[in-house]
Structure formats: C-alpha cells, structure tokens
Design a protein around this nucleic acid. Structure first.
Lengths: 348, 348
DNA sequence: ATGAAAGCGCTAACAA
DNA sequence: TTGTTAGCGCTTTCAT
C-alpha cells in the first residue's frame, strides 16, 4: 500500500477560503480569546465544512507537546495480558482520554534501556510524560530521572532514598492487615510466596514477618519463597516447594491473586482442602477473585482507580499544578472463602 | 513542570562538528549507500559522542510516517484488563517492536467514532496503520475503510460481505470441534452462552446449533443466551438463567473462558458438580484455564500468536508486501477436567 | 559523494 | 483584532 500523498486539508486552505491568515486560523483552533466572534465562526464553519483536522505531528514539532503519555511496564512474558497491569492501564487510559491524551505502550526491555530510548521518547516528545507501572529493583535506570526535567511517575513501586515521584498501594499496611487476619484465625505456621524483585514486595515480606514474629511466631515457622514472574505457575511451584519442606503449614500468603490461584490449584491436586486444610490468601482483588472456587480472600486495592490517579498526577506534574507526588493508598481486606480457622496442630 | 526548552542536539550540530552539511548527516542516519565510508564513520562517531537522537516528530512531519501502529479495542469496561485483549496486544507489541514500531492505544468510544478520530489518526499519521481487535457488529464505521487508502486489519472479527482485511480464528471450526466433543460425551441437552454482538459469535452459535441438530437434537434442548460483555459475571448470570429454565441441562458451552469460569462458579454455588452433574466448556484457553478447579476444557487459539501475525500482516500491508489479508486460524481442543460424560437422563 | 535550498503543517513572537 | 515573519528538526530534490 503506497503512502497516500493525497493533499490533506491544511490550515492554509482554511485561511484562504476564509480570507484570513493562517495564524488567525491557528488562534481560532487554539481557542485564543483575542479573536472576534464573527471571524471565529466563519473559520469554524469552514473547518467543519472541509472536515479539517489539525496535524498533530506539525503541532508537536513546534509546541513540543505530543499529547501522548508513555505507559511503561517491566519486561515480563505476555505482560499486557496480566490483569494487574491491565487494570491499571485501563484506569490510565480513561483519565488520559478525558484530557485528550493518548497512550503509548512501552516495555522496559534491553534495547529500551540500553539505547536510552526511555530518555529519547521524552526528549523528543514522543510522549510528554511517563508512568512506569511496577518497576523492579533492577530498573536502576529510572534513577537517572532525578536529574532530568521530564515528568515521570512510578506506580506501585518506589526506590528507597530516591525522590522519584510515585503513587503506590501501602504494602506495609497490606502486610499488617493480612498478617493480623491470618493470626486471628489461629494460623501459626504460614508460608509466604512473594516477589522479591520489587521493593514493595520486600516491604510486604519484611512487615509480614515482623508482625508475625511480634506475636511470638518463630522464624522457622514462617518460610518464604521469592518469585519474579508473579504468575499462576510460580504460585503452583512455590506452594509445592513450601509444602514439601513444611508439610504442616496451615496457611499460605501469596503476593498476588494469580499466585494464590496457582497455589490453590496445587493444594487441590494434592487433595488438600482450602481452607479446611490450608488457608490461602491473595493480594490485588482482581475481578476474577470472586469467581474462583473457593472465592479468594485477598487485599483489595482498586488498581483501576490507582491508574486513574496516577495519570491525573502525571498530568498535574506536566502542567505544573503539582511539583511532586509521593502518595500511598490504603488497601483493605476482602474476605471470601479461601481463608478459615487454622486446623488444630497435629504435632502439638 | 515547565517545558524544558533545553537545546536538544540536532542534526545541525552534528553537521557543524563534522564539517559536513545537515543533509549529509541525514543521509548517514538513513543508511544511504552513497555516502563515503570515511564520512559515515566520522558522522557516526559524533552521533555517539553527542548522544544524538533523531527527532521523530520532525521525521514524521516530512516523511509522513510515524512508526506507530494504533491498536483499537471495543468500548468494554476495563477492557485492557481482559486477558483476551491482553494476549493479543502482547503479541502485537512484540512483533511491532521487532520492526521499530510503537503501539498507540485506542478505544472505540463515542468520541472516537463520532469525531472521526479513527480517520484523523491515520490521515495525520499519528499511526501508520490500525489493527482493531474483536470489533462488534455495531462498529459500522469500519466499513468506511473500504474506500480509504489507510491500512486496517481486523483481528478476530469480520464484516459479512465486506472486503476489509482480517485475521481471525475459525469460529465455525471451533463450534464443530466443541459440538462434536460434547455430543460424543453423550450430551443431549446443552446450553449455550454466547456473545451476540459479533459476527464471529453468531457464526459460532449457528454452527454449533447446526451440528447438534444434525445429530438429531431438538431445538428445545439447545437453549442459548446472548451476552455482550463476555465476562465472568455474565457467565454466572446466564448459567443461572439457563438452569432456571432448563434444569436438566447436562452441559454448558460458553463463548469464552471467562464466562465458563463464571458459569462454573454458579454451578458450584448450587452444589452442582462439574463435570459430574454439568459439563462446562470454555473458549480461548487463557493462561489461567489450566489453574481453575476443575481445569477448564476449552478451545485453544493462541491469541498471542494471533497478535503477532496480525501485526506482521498489517506491516506487510503498510509496506506493500501484501495487498490484502483474509486469514483463518484453526483452533484446537484442549481437554481438561470440566467436561465429562453426560449424566444419565433422569427423565428418560 | 556532498551541499544548498525548499518545505512538511503548524505556532508564536512581533508588527500593524 | 489580525497579519507577517520565522522557525520547530528533519528529508529530499536538484546542483555541483
């Protein structure tokens, strides 16, 4: 298919038809208040008549604004099919759309980082700002943005000691809620499956263990497994690993719902009932969490809303309405059927 | 945050530093064969040294190519969190990335259609081409592209009688595979939950019913429910509706895995066992289908691959390597635990 | 093999 | 209130 060089209608044509100068048309199009109502009308009529649409490329080139936002995600397999990212992206899209911004997708892979594409995108205004969802501890390149003038917002992650903007769920709070819930149900041997490639994951783990130890549980009764893909398969594998070494676990706390679902599947394969034999708790409250069997007890964190908010903040940063953003959102418990009272300890 | 007007390095600087003209630098950057190796080296060295990055906006303006592809999806709630779209988008991203293309997200909502944004995006090269995933029968605006020179590719949908390019799973074949499977298991009263807002959904329904009727099953034993959101909740609701009117169903065929999961949840709430009391079959084989309890019998259609292929075809269309695309991909059965022999009919 | 010049479509001083 | 004049940073004839 050849490049259609068919003459598109330009601002010049409109100007000619209306007997005004191109700049007048430009001012009309940009809602300048210093244009007479009558000329404005005349121009707008012609715009409609000729079905004129401004060329965003030309606009961007001179105004240095693309009206585009980059949404960047970590380099995970099939990352856009992960409902966690999807919910956040849906929220971002919605908010961006309200302000006339478009979303450009990016994955932080080798080339993206090595070639400094992340910088180029902003420098040359392919995007006016960037939101990076759930970056990992390896994404050190982000620290470079501390010295760059380009708007960047981290979603559900942060770098200790850095001043990078972020908006995130309070994972320490999440850990406390989860730990208290399981403790109250009488669980004293709890396995943890947690992503160890994010600072938020590490926060969760550390806080969870702290709370449990604060209630007198010994370290040996709090085994944990680190993961990095956060998917069902890892949940399955890690549940297997955990139970092989600690067959007397009465509860498993997974770092997200997908891993919880994988863990439940393993337990069911082993003919262990959830929650009668082993309780399983997830995190995120993804839409399908209420449709699993049993329904998943989890931590709700409104990822869609988080997406909307992150976009709003980025836009504010962009427009100078905000100069920094460091915000934590509270998660809350959602109790369904996958957690229950601990089975009496056969060893005690 | 003010717009950083910090002078970016341009082609001119490079030219000045190398004592050549800007056009020479441009030729080097575009790998023109008519540049002497020595000058090429000199220029490239300076490019590296100054960390020069071409400005895509300026490039697009003159070359009329943005190196961007628009990925458009229907206006469903939280659409990007649907793993079905996510898988396809992941595939598209991967293939686009290999060719240096970026992905621009779009949702076919009111404004997008009414303001003819879909056309503007292509006319003004915010995107060089568009892939529309799973459009619906309401998306008549797409027919306009029959007379437009812009590359458009439909994924998993088509419009009867139109010549629009598409690549899709063969849903008629899928219906045959599913029907034969359930029929072979002895099911004679099968409920169908199917999206009726797509031609592919209608194809599936019609073919499924046809095959069953061909095997002597009466219409009254083949009740079906039409849906439009294709999610777990609709699956749940429709399973309820179906069983209320036809308590003797021995199988439910759902239009996708998410609805199948919702249906299973309803059955389990009603203390009906899957598959002993009712078999449930899904479609898509989403990654989590193997982790549900019971594991989901479904139709595999490698959505990621479909995404890759669609992008490849669009790029071919764009580059004139192909002039049209009407391709069907074969689905295949994946049997897990959610389907089994029909329960002996208590009425017979 | 390279340079000069024009221009993609628009915005933004500065004049008028 | 509107028009004139320069570009934004790049590609692309057409000369040389």
């Amino acid at each position: 298919m050849a490049i259609p060089r068919s003459k598109n209608i330009t601002i010049k044509e409109i100007a000619a038809q209306c007997d005004v100068s191109p700049s007048t048309v430009s001012l009309v199009l940009n809602n300048s208040p210093k244009i007479k109502a009558s000329t404005r009308d005349r121009v707008m009529k012609m715009v409609d008549k000729l079905d004129y649409q401004p060329n965003q490329m030309a606009r961007s080139l001179v105004s240095r604004r693309s009206k585009c936002l980059s949404v960047t995600v970590p380099n995970l397999a099939h990352v856009f099919s992960d409902v966690y990212f999807g919910e956040i992206i849906s929220g971002i899209y919605q908010e961006a759309n309200l302000s006339g911004y478009k979303i450009l997708l990016d994955i932080a892979q080798e080339k993206f980082i090595g070639d400094k594409e992340y910088l180029n995108i902003l420098r040359n205004r392919r995007a006016d700002g960037m939101v990076y969802i759930a970056s990992t501890i390896e994404d050190r390149f982000l620290l470079e943005f501390e010295e760059q003038p380009y708007p960047l917002l981290l979603v559900n992650h942060y770098f200790p000691g850095s001043q990078l903007n972020y908006i995130s769920v309070d994972y320490k709070k999440a850990a406390k809620l989860a730990a208290h819930h399981l403790l109250e149900l009488g669980h004293r041997k709890i396995g943890l499956i947690i992503g160890t490639n994010t600072f938020t994951g590490l926060d969760f783990r550390d806080t969870f263990l702290e709370v449990c130890e604060g209630r007198g549980i010994e370290k040996k009764d709090l085994p944990w497994c680190g993961v990095k893909d956060w998917d069902e398969q890892e949940g399955y594998e890690m549940a297997k690993k955990l139970l092989a070494r600690h067959p007397d676990l009465t509860a498993i706390m997974a770092g997200n719902d997908r891993m919880a679902i994988g863990a439940i599947r393993y337990l069911s394969n082993m003919n262990l009932r959830v929650p009668e034999d082993v309780s399983v708790m997830g995190m995120d409250d993804i839409p399908s969490a209420r449709y699993t069997t049993p329904g998943l007890s989890t931590l709700h964190m409104d990822l869609f809303r988080l997406g909307e908010l992150s976009c709003r903040h980025l836009l504010n940063l962009l427009e100078g309405k905000e100069s920094e953003c460091h915000e934590l959102k509270e998660p809350h418990l959602v109790l369904r059927e996958s957690t229950g009272p601990a089975k009496p300890d056969s060893a005690s």
